[in-house]
Simulated assay, not measured.
Amino acid sequence: MTVAIVVGNPKPASRTAGAAHALVRRLTGSPPDVVVDVVDLGPGVLGWGDAGVEAAVKAVAGADLVVVASPTYKASYTGLLKCFLDQFATGDGLRGVTAVPLMLGAGPAHAMAPDLLLKPVLVELGATCPAPGLYARDATAAELPEAEAWVQVWGHVLLTTAHLRKEPS
């Protein structure tokens, strides 16, 4: 099984990235195979045809399980993440990929953001999202205590779904 993380934080090596890594370790017991910290893609993410962005899109689309992580900005996910997700074809860009929306925030006010805002975009791109998104406090992102109970309930569902074979292209 190939596991990827996509981090849409404008700060490199962010707490958001740390939380995505922590979640993957809790789910699989291993680090991710693919890491896309979108900020590292630079200005190529703002248009189409950039080789680095295309390679990142291909790597994520080829994963079985992907954690898509963003801090909460203005009650939503970041524009940087949106620019990257716009690179995927609508309907089938993430077909066969099991996706987990993960968002961080300062408090509980935006706890529904992963499900209300990020999950619909992932589904629009063809991803399967069989579990509720995870919202975590950015102050404790490195430890990700919110993930313990969440993984106990949803980990098996995610891993089983991710192990299902993708449709042949």
Rank of each mutant, 00 (worst) to 15 (best):
A17W: 12
P32C: 07
V121Q: 12
H21W: 07
P32Y: 03
Y73T: 05
L134F: 02
A56I: 02
A131C: 03
V6F: 00
G44H: 08
M1V: 02
V157I: 14
E146A: 15
W150M: 08
H21G: 11
V36W: 05
S76G: 11
A142K: 14
K11L: 11
V24L: 01
L80G: 04
L41W: 07
V57W: 03
V151Q: 01
R25P: 07
R26W: 03
L134Y: 02
W154V: 07
P10K: 05
A111H: 11
A89Y: 13
A106W: 07
T161N: 07
K58T: 15
A4E: 01
A149L: 10
P43N: 08
A51C: 01
P168E: 13
S76Y: 05
W150P: 06
T72G: 00
T98V: 14
V3N: 02
E148G: 12
N9L: 07
A4D: 00
S30Y: 10
V60G: 12
E124V: 02
D92S: 13
A22W: 00
K74W: 11
D37H: 02
P101D: 06
L122F: 04
P12L: 10
A149H: 02
E146M: 12
P10S: 10
A113T: 13
E148R: 15
L118K: 10
P43Y: 12
P12W: 13
C83M: 15
T161S: 14
A141E: 06
D138P: 00
G42M: 06
P108N: 15
V38K: 05
G133C: 12
V57N: 04
P120C: 14
A142L: 15
K82E: 09
L104H: 12
P168H: 12
R25M: 14
A59W: 12
D86R: 01
K74A: 11
G49F: 14
V35F: 08
Y73L: 09
Q87E: 08
P32G: 05
G29R: 00
E54F: 11
P32E: 06
S70A: 12
L65S: 01
L104S: 12
V34R: 05
R95T: 14
T161V: 03
G91F: 08
G93V: 02
V35K: 10
G126A: 10
G93A: 01
S169R: 15
A142N: 15
K58Q: 14
V34S: 05
G91E: 09
A162G: 09
V7S: 09
V123F: 00
A141R: 04
L41N: 04
A19H: 04
T28M: 06
